[in-house]
């Protein structure tokens, strides 16, 4: 019997990053702006995406990738708004990865898409480690998750490019200080824009939507 040590140097996450880069190049080629919407279960990801679709669909061509353990439920909500939607069932998995998105991109007519909204699986942990090729990483957190939720999940807030604190209209009812949540996010990631939203406050939704629209415009001028 002989013993050998074989060097491998295979980075599991880098393998995902490489596919993500490929996705990004494909999206860039078609001047599509893509948003990875992350957040816990019930934080309001689907609702905020719906609002963005409603306000932007007359101006831009929108497609959606809806990732979930059972993706059909959210997908049917998006389809009601008349946008092409690709459900991605992750089965037992807790996040979307670049390979799943690569496959979904094959089903989207990118020549006729300006904005791709990707709803990730409801989870504040696993999606952090898996880039998809997106242009904007958004994390949505709601006041109902408690105002200590941010410091318990530092990495998702550290790596986000936009943070949304949602359902602020009921903060008082659940005894949560939304401003503390904002301060916690900024303590982890001082440069990230933080916006406070409520689906009942039109002005707050406008801020969220204008953020996305800015990205779409930039992509079109690239």
């Amino acid at each position: 019997m002989l013993m050998h040590v074989i060097d491998m140097g295979h980075d599991v996450y880098k393998a995902n990053d490489k596919v993500a880069e490929k996705n990004r190049k494909k999206l860039d080629k078609h001047q599509v702006f893509s948003v990875n919407v992350m957040g816990a279960i019930g934080s309001g990801k689907t609702t905020l995406i719906e609002e963005a679709i409603r306000q932007l669909k007359d101006k831009y061509r929108i497609a959606v990738i809806a990732g979930d353990v059972i993706a059909e439920m959210d997908s049917s909500r998006f389809r009601k708004l008349d946008v092409p939607t690709i459900p991605v069932n992750t089965g037992k998995e807790c996040h979307l990865d670049a390979k799943l998105v690569e496959k979904a991109l094959d089903e989207i007519d990118l020549n006729n898409t300006d904005l791709l909204l990707i709803e990730n699986v409801g989870n504040l942990i696993c999606p952090v480690d898996f880039k998809l090729g997106e242009h904007l990483r958004v994390v949505i957190v709601s006041v109902t998750e408690g105002d200590d939720i941010i410091l318990k999940h530092p990495m998702i807030f550290k790596t986000a490019e936009l943070a949304v604190i949602n359902k602020v209209d009921i903060a008082h009812a659940v005894d949560v200080d939304a401003e503390k949540m904002r301060d916690d996010i900024l303590s982890l990631n001082p440069k990230v824009p933080v916006i406070l939203t409520s689906k009942h406050d039109w002005e707050s939704l406008e801020t969220w939507i204008s953020f996305i629209e800015l990205g779409v415009k930039e992509a079109q001028n690239r």
């Binding site: 019997m1 002989l2 013993m3 050998h4 040590v5 074989i6 060097d7 491998m8 140097g9 295979h10 980075d11 599991v12 996450y13 880098k14 480690d129």
Partner: peptide, 16 residues
């Protein structure tokens, strides 16, 4: 600090 690398494996082979 976010990597996950398979650095190496140690294996046994038949004598040659």
């Amino acid at each position: 600090g976010r990597e996950l690398i398979i650095k190496s494996i140690e294996i046994e082979t038949e004598d040659q």
